[in-house]
């Protein structure tokens, strides 16, 4: 029994290592060849995991082979549009200028019910509101409303906007994040000073973030939230 337990841990670690090495796309939307591999991997490791008389290598080696093939396909696809198109397919437009492309839907064996379901998933209730809808290579549906129905943007109002990039999370659960400080070109001393101005230390803070406008938002462990201008916008350099 202990053997089964240990073998399951070993195979799990091997799987995590290979899946991690394959990249983020394995965890998100699959391309067809990635979907096939995910199914295969589960089956390959299940037998040695549960059967002590099957060597562990009979599970790990096939997974290694799949990793090699997957890497080869991925690397070649980066350099060859034709191969990428062959393996992953191309997106298909099913609504163009508000008109449903019936021939394309027949070719994809896509029913109206499937398409409407996909539109509901992206927040569009009325099919008459759709200007463009695309079936992506991985099978998901992207739908975009008519221009007249989209939310007003600053561009529409001729408003000037400043850069809004990702905030850096400087403290997580009481622990300063050295990587984030480095990315923002700030120091631990600077952070300590900013916190001390509000009678806080890093340990008192649940989460501390700094946005690209220079605003720092701190939630302490008691739940109190404070937001202040820690940097001038021109001092932000990430």
């Amino acid at each position: 029994m202990l053997t089964l337990f240990i073998r399951a841990i070993i195979l799990y670690i091997a799987l995590v290592a290979f899946t991690r090495a394959m990249g983020k796309r394995q965890l998100g939307q699959f391309q067809p060849y990635e979907f096939v591999m995910t199914m295969l991997i589960a089956n390959l490791v299940s037998v040695p995991m549960s059967d002590v008389s099957t060597p562990l290598l009979h599970g790990i080696l096939p997974v290694a082979a799949l990793f090699v093939v997957h890497s080869l396909i991925t690397l070649t696809s980066l350099r060859s549009d034709a191969l990428r198109s062959f393996l992953s397919g191309k997106p298909s437009v099913i609504v163009e200028r508000g008109v449903w492309q019936q021939d394309e839907m027949k070719r994809l064996c896509l029913t109206l019910a499937d398409a409407l379901e996909g539109m509901h998933a992206v927040g569009i209730l009325d099919p008459a509101d759709v200007e463009t809808a695309i079936v992506e290579a991985n099978g998901s549906i992207s739908a975009f409303p008519r221009a007249a129905l989209r939310p007003v943007t600053p561009d529409d109002l001729d408003m000037e906007t400043s850069y809004q990039g990702p905030p850096v999370i400087l403290i997580m659960d009481g622990r300063p994040q050295p990587g984030s400080l480095q990315a923002a070109r700030l120091t631990g001393d600077w952070l300590a000073g900013a916190l001390a101005a509000h009678s806080l230390t890093a340990k008192d803070v649940f989460i501390c973030s700094l946005d690209t406008q220079g605003f720092m938002t701190i939630q302490d462990r008691r739940g109190a939230v404070v937001r202040f201008q820690a940097l001038q916008p021109e001092e932000v350099n990430w």
């Binding site: 090495a21 080696l61 890497s71 690397l75 980066l78």
Partner: peptide, 23 residues
């Protein structure tokens, strides 16, 4: 991309070495 290529080569070499050794 380079890291991926290197790791692919490493895994391939190790796998082939295990197969040869086993044989």
């Amino acid at each position: 991309m380079k890291k991926r290529f290197v790791s692919m080569l490493v895994v391939l070499t190790l796998s082939l070495a295990i197969c040869l050794g086993s044989f």
